[in-house]
Every structure is written in structure tokens, then in C-alpha cells.
Amino acid sequence: MSEKIDARGLSCPQPVVLTQQAIKKGLTEFQVLVDTVVSKENVLRCVEKNKLAGSAAADGETFIISVSKK
């Protein structure tokens, strides 16, 4: 079970900050939950920048971003 970061409802740029912190902790496999398209784009950009792979899937009103090694 990979770690889940619930960033739903948090305003910009907190979803990115939380993602960054997870990456800094050395995590390479985790999920980020967000609920706006903007946060989804921002988190994906942050993941890309850190040379990890990210893919987003919509689950109702939530986007689940799965991060993994490239």
C-alpha cells in the first residue's frame, strides 16, 4: 500500500509543497489526492520536474495522482 497524501481543498501551492516534501523524504511511490484541475496540473508538473512519473485518474470529484519511478 503506497502512501496517500490528501491535498483536497488545500489552496495553491500547498498540494505542490506536500508533494515536494514527500519526494524529499525519499518516497518514489505514492498517491496525491486533489480536487481541482489546477492542483492536478501543478502536482503533475512538480512530479515531472523531479524526474518521476505521474498519472492522474478521476474518481468522482477527486483526482488521484499516482506517482512512481520513471
Partner: peptide, 13 residues
Amino acid sequence: GSLRDIILARDFH
């Protein structure tokens, strides 16, 4: 946000 992203994440988007 443009300036914040540079300071926070070296993100120049």
C-alpha cells in the same frame, strides 16, 4: 505565483 514558484520550487513556468 510566478515569483513564489521560483523561490519555492525553481519552477519558471
